[in-house]
Design a protein around this nucleic acid. Structure first.
Length: 315
DNA sequence: CATGCGTGGTG
DNA sequence: TCACCAAGCAT
C-alpha cells in the first residue's frame, strides 16, 4: 500500500512555497476549481457511469501521451469489441496491437492486453480496487494507478499527471513549468493539497486535471478563463518565462521509432504472415531497418516465423 | 534518473 | 516549415 522505506520528513508543509505557517492546504483552490469543473467539464465517454472501471482503465492507457481527440474513436471501438477484461484476455495480443491503430506507442496495447489477462486470472475478471494491485498490473504506473482508483472508484489519491503538475507549478509555486521529472516535493505538495473528504478529493483530482488540459495549458494559457487566476502565484508574479535549459525535445524523423512505426503499420494491415521483402520496402537503410525489426520482436510486438515471415503476435 | 518508445495536430 | 506538444511506463 504505502511506500515502505520513507525516512520521516520534518514538517510536511515546511517545503511548501507560499505556505509560511503551513496553512496552505488548498481550501482556497478546491471550491473554485471544482465549481469550474461542474460547469465546463467535457462530456467524455469514460466519464459516464456506464464506462465502469474497465472503461476508465482503457481510456487511461490510451491517453498516456496521446491526445483525447485521437483516443475517442478507438476507445469506442475497443469497448464495443471487448466490453470486459476477460473479452480482451481471450484474444491474441496481436489483435490488441492491431486494434490500437495509429494511437502510437503500441507497447501500451500489449501491456493493456497483459493487464486484462492478469485481471482475469488474479482478480476474477474485475478491475482491482486496490491501488497496490493496480500498480502491479503491466502498463500501470504511479499516475494510472491513482487515476483508476480515483476516477473509477472515487478513492482519495494524489493524481499527478502533467496537467496537474503544471497547474501546481503555476498556481502554487509560481513558475511556468514543472520540473522534467516528477519530484518528491511535487508528490508532497499534491498530497498536501488533497481534500480530506474522499468524494471531494476524487472530484478535485479530475477537476485540477481538466483545468490543466483546457485552461492552464502549456502554451497560450487562458488566465482570463481561469477560476483561480486571482490566487495564481505565477500570474501574480507577472508570469515569468521558464528559466534554465530547454527541455529536450523528442526527435522523430530518421529514428528507430519512425522505422518501427512503418514496419508495424504494414503488419497491422496484413491479415496473413508478411514476407521480409515486403517489410524491407518501408526503409532504405538495412542496418537500421534490421535493428528496428529486431527491437519489435524483442518487445513482443512482432512474431517471427520460419521462412522469413512476420506477423503480429498470436501469443 | 535519463532514455527510448509513435503519431498527428498546430502556430 | 518544422519544432514542439499530448492524461506515462519500463528499464
Amino acid at each position: 500500500m504505502t511506500a515502505p522505506t520513507k525516512p520521516p520528513h520534518t514538517s510536511p508543509t515546511e517545503a511548501l512555497p507560499g505556505s509560511p505557517r503551513g496553512e496552505i492546504r488548498g481550501e482556497h483552490l478546491h471550491s473554485p476549481v471544482i465549481a469550474w469543473f461542474d460547469e465546463h467539464a467535457r462530456d467524455l465517454p469514460w466519464r459516464r457511469p456506464e464506462a465502469g472501471a474497465w472503461g476508465v482503465m482503457v481510456s487511461e492507457f490510451m491517453l498516456q501521451q496521446t491526445p483525447v481527440n485521437r483516443v475517442l474513436p478507438v476507445y469506442e471501438q475497443w469497448l464495443a469489441r471487448w466490453p470486459r477484461p476477460a473479452d480482451l484476455a481471450k484474444e491474441a495480443p496481436g489483435e490488441a496491437v492491431r486494434a490500437w491503430g495509429r494511437l502510437g506507442y503500441p507497447r501500451r496495447a500489449l501491456r493493456l492486453h497483459g493487464a486484462a489477462v492478469a485481471i482475469t486470472e488474479r482478480h476474477g475478471g474485475d478491475v482491482p480496487t486496490d491501488h497496490a494491485q493496480l500498480l502491479a498490473l503491466p502498463g500501470i504506473g504511479e499516475y494510472t494507478a491513482a487515476a483508476v482508483a480515483s476516477f473509477a472508484y472515487g478513492q482519495r489519491h494524489a493524481v499527478l499527471d502533467t496537467n496537474v503538475r503544471r497547474v501546481f507549478a503555476r498556481a502554487v509555486i509560481g513558475v511556468q513549468y514543472p520540473p522534467n521529472a516528477t519530484t518528491a516535493a511535487e508528490r508532497r505538495l499534491a498530497r498536501a493539497l488533497l481534500p480530506d473528504d474522499e468524494r471531494i478529493a476524487a472530484r478535485w483530482a479530475a477537476a485540477s486535471m481538466e483545468l490543466g488540459a483546457l485552461v492552464c495549458t502549456a502554451k497560450n494559457e487562458g488566465c482570463n478563463r481561469c477560476p483561480i487566476a486571482a490566487q495564481c502565484a505565477w500570474r501574480l508574479a507577472g508570469k515569468p518565462e521558464h528559466e534554465g535549459p530547454p527541455r529536450r525535445g523528442q526527435t522523430y524523423a530518421g529514428t528507430d521509432r519512425q522505422v518501427r512505426g512503418k514496419l508495424l503499420a504494414v503488419l497491422r494491415e496484413a491479415h496473413a504472415p508478411v514476407p521480409q521483402a515486403l517489410l524491407d520496402r518501408v526503409w532504405h537503410e538495412p542496418v537500421q531497418r534490421a535493428r528496428a525489426l529486431d527491437g519489435l520482436v524483442a518487445d513482443g510486438l512482432v512474431e517471427p516465423l520460419p521462412g522469413g515471415l512476420y506477423r503480429l503476435p498470436l501469443s
